[in-house]
Amino acid sequence: MKIGIVSFAHMHAYSYAKALIQLEGVELAGIYDPDEQRGQKFAGILGTSYYGDYAELLSQGLSGIVVTSENANHKEHVLAAAKAGVHVLCEKPISTNAADARDMIEACKAAGVMLQTAFPVRYNRSVIRAKQMIDEGKLGRILAMKGTNRGQNPGGWFVDPALSGGGAVIDHTVHVADIMRWFTGAEVKEVYAEIGQLMSAVPIDDCGILSIEFDNGVFATLDCSWSRNPSFPTWGDVTLEIVGTAGTLTIDAFGQKLNVFSEERGYRHHFWGDDMDFGLVRDFVASIAEGRTEANVTGVDGLKALEVALAAYRSAERLTAVSPAEL
């Protein structure tokens, strides 16, 4: 099975590429990147071909493509893949705006190709185990959740709203919003957010606390801030505290770690758990192999999570809670 990659603008491309290479029966068929130097470099490292034109890559008999371009360019690349009849794994957030996301979902549906949103946290073992426990009723009924997905300011195009659609809020809301939807089976009814540019010199939202009301009466908060600094021992976190009628559950998705204190790098966490990016890519490939028309994590899931971030921005402007349905 031949899989291509569109753009190494997002650093996750490298990790997805390594997963593809490890998978039996999968060939990393080529890399397109508008930045030729970057594309050539990674093609060399990964032992694959570089394409300066994505249409050409898409015509190499691909079964699937991984879209890891800048958020604003997802649409162009996903529509091209749909047109070529190639299944898509699209990096999160699915888009910078809901209209484009809907177009992408429609185009893939019409073309009969799968559109999967890359939500790797769904493949984190602790998160999967938590979902099992919830489904087994161990917590009773879920009442409330408290999530964090914090990180460092990634810089580059991530802080250029024309390419990213926004800062920390659009970058870091979607993962945990998706997990919360998955765990509860409920949809977001309202979002309130306090957002700020409190740390970085460039004008971009880098701090945010969202309060979320679900349509089944569950409430939650989510800290999506780029509030980790370089001396913090790891890149960031994904945590979730869940309060249910019968118990509580505390998830630290990257809690499987060694504490390493080296002269060179100071104190760092080294994660030793299963690689969730590998799980994500393996699932995408398996869904293609099974001839499925719908991915396990869909474009609609990507849109629903994006809507939470967009509602948060709107809320911060208006100082009221905002329903994603109003957007």
């Binding site: 009442l143 309060s211 939650a220 309060v243 009628t245």
Partner: peptide, 20 residues
């Protein structure tokens, strides 16, 4: 101040509040 809490949502002897 913006806040959400269990008060008024459940009658079990539980309370949980998240305040911004």
């Amino acid at each position: 101040v913006y806040a959400k809490g269990l008060h008024g949502r459940v009658h079990a002897q539980l309370d949980y509040s998240l305040v911004t």
